[in-house]
Design a protein around this nucleic acid. Structure first.
Length: 895
RNA sequence: GCGGGUGUGGUGAAAUUGGUAGACACGCUAGAUUUAGGAUCUAGUGCUUCACGGCGUGGGGGUUCGAGUCCCUUCACCCGCACCA
């Protein structure tokens, strides 16, 4: 009987679905285990072989844990709000809901073909109104809470202590300054191309994370989340998480805690406040610098310098973040004409403005110490400002950033600079000129987007738009609009629908908030909804949350290091403070699966011509690399020109310069439709089956590692499954015997069980696949047909290749699914070896092997050696110094 | 610049605490079988040498009886942050 994977896989996928085999039981007495994948955005192009890598790994763990007696929650859903669906809607006028639903269906279909053990009864889509009503509900919780810095937790806004002597209006605006979700007019990242505001986390090197479009700073009124209140806890709690160090580090850097002092420099009747981590260098301050956005600039600029200052400010405001960064080396700046006083030395120092000082960090102003800070040093040299060295060290005339003794500070000379830090801070504090403080790089989270396809924000404004009020009739559904484009004046498409924007409640007129939430909102808490997806009274039942949380294993890409993972932790902590969830952290263990890369093919076009030249013929010609579809290229990199011309009309009139064949070049890149290098899991499943695909993806290498896809090696895994199938067959018929397995068979079996169990615990799936291959090779060469051994092997393999194992399991006469069969355990006693070959080496160099009893004593070896039975030939008359006998089967003789 | 990571055959990669480096698989070579095969089976396959042997985990140095693994140094590549005061 042939291994008919197509029939087998179809049969069992249907079986699992119909029998709800993987339904997680909320009332089970078994210990729980929650395995979560980062749910996908259902894009229009479907899955490629890279997507399932993490899903397969988490599925193996899920099936393994189920088999180990755990009650496993392994859900899947879709992060279905997002920009591509909206952009498609803008182009075609189709409602994003429609295209999203189509894409979700396609994704589900593709996922099911892989035999993933999801509990589909718990499926959620973030764009469903009965899901996002709770996203909106959580938003209102944030709106109605504040952070109590004494208790170090969030509390309902009613508990906020209000300062006395405030009238009603003032009380309300005081509350507004404390809410965790608040409105503020701030300098936001505006992306013209996307027509929306972006969070700091979504801007990379001055360009938008999505699409790579330029981003400029622009003051806008926005909803903001006070994530900075949680900075310390988000930082400290990292230590208790079993996460990859690199992710923890990214979060740590992003939060960017630094300890230092705020120092007030008097100027006229006012003062300039700066933040510094180096109060010990205060005597070396030779000028101050303000960011061009600093509010004091106008006040302190003298008439003489007013023109140049306003020109500079104007110029800086027009620069994008990217342009600012380009000038990193060449510092620019202008003198304000004013002087401030050094609060310790009372020296008069000039005040400058420059865009190397960021308004968004610290106080937006710095004290410049050119002798001990490289940026200040460059600036001072360029504008010929004074440089005073106050710490001993480094070369003369060079900027020194290390530690040392204080110099040029009169009475303080000779003190260690680290000690001097606290002396300065104490002195400042006693004079009311400054204080110790901590600063964070983390900014509050800009939460609103000028988009259509997102959660509407459940807020209404009174008629003067002065006050934001909660709108708690949830869900607040997305209204219909005529066009999905943002309006010209930076408003969301929702603002186009006047009927919706204007609302009357109890005879009073209100206006709705028209911005929507960012894509991250839905994914901030989806793992909680999986626990209780159909609950209409609360976002999830508290007891069920207590039962299932935290997520024991979270598998997903490293690209979410500071976005999703930080936001989700933040929301979770708020919900924890308010008593809605039972754990302060949502994800206990995190595994980052690597990316599977594509092997792109390029045809080379000679620059400024329509001629393409075979890669092996390029000599001096300057060429341009053009992607061609990898399905038209054979394994020797020869391009099938006919196929290409037939499928890609743009190549129809192209001239191909070639010898016998036309060769392309190859390069490893991210897999994507636009690079024509996508390998679809559907094709692999058709040819080899899902079990082969699953095992091959695991076999490719460590899950955490990125690696190029190479279909070439898949035949090894395919033939392994065929061998496995054959092990249960004799003369074309299913066959197992009741023979007692030999000692040798038992040894191989127990060795494999030990290896596989250990490997799954360590997420080392590639080595366990190897262990299976070795095991099956040996068992088939021994002709093992023992029912007992083979059926246990079947359970052992079932997390990896579930379909074939289910099929064999039923052929073995079982009528229940293999999924909950007890996972095999190994017995150490079968692994002990009585006679072992010991390599014997002399001075560390291997010479020969001897066979000895496994439990031999070192004395016996010594007497063997001393009797010269072993060593005459090698010792050559020299005497033995010592004999080293180590448990790793080595005897080493030193002479 | 700062921080983190990775360097092992033709390829993907293995190698608990330092203990016979290259398991397993692809590829390649030879053979068997088949009308044929992107099928199956057997053997070989780090480099070098006719062979004995020698050399081999990016380079150099060190510790050790013994180093892919530990220490120092250096190079290359990748990732994150980046004028963060």
């Amino acid at each position: 009987m042939k291994y008919d994977f197509f029939k087998i896989e179809k049969k069992w996928q249907k079986f699992w679905l119909e029998n709800k085999t993987f339904k997680a039981d909320n009332n089970s007495k078994k210990p729980k285990y929650y395995v979560l994948d980062m749910f996908p955005y259902p894009s229009g192009s479907g899955l490629h072989v890279g997507h399932p890598l993490g899903y397969i790994a988490s599925d193996i763990v899920s099936r393994f844990k189920r088999s180990k007696g755990f009650n496993v929650l392994h859900p899947m859903g879709f992060d279905s709000f997002g920009l591509p669906a909206e952009q498609y809607a803008i182009k075609t006028g189709q409602h994003p809901k429609k295209t999203t639903e189509e894409n979700v269906l396609r994704f589900k279909n593709q996922l099911d073909k892989l035999g993933l053990s999801f509990d589909w009864d718990r499926e959620i889509k973030t764009s469903d109104s009965n899901y996002y009503r709770w996203t909106q509900w959580i938003f209102l919780k944030l709106f109605n809470s504040y952070y109590d810095h004494g208790l170090n937790k969030a509390l309902p806004i009613e508990k906020l202590k209000i300062p006395k002597n405030l009238n009603e209006k003032e009380i309300e605006s005081f509350k507004d300054t404390k809410r965790l979700a608040y409105v503020d007019t701030i300098n936001v990242n505006w992306c013209e191309e996307l027509g929306t505001v972006l969070a700091n986390e979504e801007v990379i090197g001055g360009l938008s994370e999505r699409g790579g479009f330029p981003v400029i700073k622009r003051p806008m009124k926005q909803w903001v989340m006070r994530i900075t209140d949680y900075a310390d806890r988000l930082l400290n709690d990292l230590s208790e998480l079993d996460w990859p160090e690199s992710i923890k580090l990214s979060q740590k850097n992003w939060i960017g805690k630094s300890e230092g002092a705020e120092i007030k420099f008097p100027i006229d009747n006012n003062f300039i406040e700066v933040f510094t981590t180096r109060p010990d260098t205060i005597f070396g301050v030779t000028y101050l610098v303000l960011a061009p956005e600093h509010p004091l600039i106008n006040e302190i600029t003298t008439e003489k310098y007013r023109k140049s200052i306003s020109e500079y400010v104007e110029l800086a405001s027009k620069k994008s973040d990217l342009e600012r960064q380009e000038n990193e080396k060449d510092k620019t700046g202008v003198f304000t004409g004013s002087f401030a006083l050094n609060p310790i030395s009372n020296e008069k120092i000039p005040v400058w403005i420059s865009d190397y000082v960021l308004f968004s960090y610290g106080t937006g102003a710095i004290m410049a110490v050119p002798a001990h800070d490289e940026r200040d040093n460059k600036f001072a040299k360029k504008f010929d400002l004074k440089i005073i060295k106050v710490i001993d060290g480094g070369k003369k005339d060079e900027c020194y950033t290390g530690n040392g003794s204080i110099i040029n500070c009169g009475e303080y000379d000779g003190i260690d600079n680290i000690k001097f830090k606290s002396i300065v801070v104490e002195k400042l504090e006693s004079n009311n000129k400054g204080n110790k403080t901590t600063n964070y790089k983390l900014r509050d989270w800009i939460f609103t987007r000028q988009r259509y396809w997102g959660e509407p924000i459940p807020i209404i404004y009174d008629e003067n738009k002065k006050r934001a009020l909660e709108f708690d009739d949830l869900p607040l559904e997305l209204p219909k609009v005529e066009s999905y484009l943002p309006t010209n004046d930076g408003l969301s498409p929702l603002a186009r629908n006047n009927n919706w924007v204007n609302i009357s409640i109890n005879g009073k007129n209100y206006l709705r908030e028209t911005n929507t939430m960012p894509q991250w909102a839905g994914s901030c808490w989806y793992f909680l909804r999986f626990i209780d997806p159909d609950n209409n009274n609360e976002f999830a039942n508290k007891d069920l949350i207590k039962h299932w949380m935290p997520v024991d294993l979270y598998v997903g890409g490293a690209e979410h290091a500071v976005l999703h993972l930080l936001y989700a932790r933040f929301w979770h902590k708020v919900l924890f403070d308010l008593g809605y969830v039972s754990t302060s952290e949502p994800f206990k263990k995190l595994i980052n699966q690597g990316m599977i890369l594509g092997n792109s093919a390029f045809a080379h076009r000679i620059k400024n011509t329509n001629d393409f030249i075979s890669f092996d013929m390029i000599k001096d010609e300057k060429t341009q690399k053009i992607h061609v579809d990898i399905s038209f290229v054979d394994k020797n990199n020869r391009l099938n020109i006919e196929k290409l011309k037939k499928n890609n009309p743009e190549f129809r009139d192209v001239n191909f310069i070639k010898g016998e064949s036309f060769y392309v070049s190859r390069d490893i890149e991210k897999m994507s439709k636009s690079r024509y290098n996508v390998i679809s899991p559907d094709d692999i499943c058709k040819r080899y089956g899902a079990d082969t695909l699953r095992m091959y993806e695991m076999f490719l290498g460590p899950v955490e590692q990125s690696k190029p896809w190479n279909t070439g090696g898949i035949s090894g895994v395919f033939s392994f499954l065929n061998k496995f199938w054959k092990l249960f067959h004799r003369d074309e018929k299913f066959y197992v015997s009741d023979d007692q397995p030999s000692d040798e068979v038992l040894k191989i079996y127990h060795k494999t069980v030990k290896k596989v169990v250990n490997d799954i615990d360590n997420f080392s799936f590639n080595t366990s696949v190897s262990a299976f291959m070795i095991c099956i090779n040996e068992l088939s060469s021994m002709g093992c047909s023992s029912r007992n051994i083979l059926s246990n092997l079947c359970i052992l393999l079932s997390p990896f290749a579930p379909h074939i194992c289910e099929e064999i399991w039923s052929l073995l006469g079982n009528d229940k699914s293999i999924s909950y069969e007890k996972y095999p355990e190994f017995d150490e006693k079968f692994l002990e070896e009585s006679i072992v070959e010991y390599p014997v080496s002399f001075n560390g160099k291997l010479r020969f092997k001897i066979s000895l009893q496994n439990n031999i004593e070192i004395k016996e070896v010594e007497s063997l050696v001393n009797n010269h039975k072993l060593t005459n030939k090698y010792l050559d008359g020299k005497s033995i110094k010592k004999i080293i006998f180590v448990p790793k089967k080595i005897i080493n003789i030193v002479f």
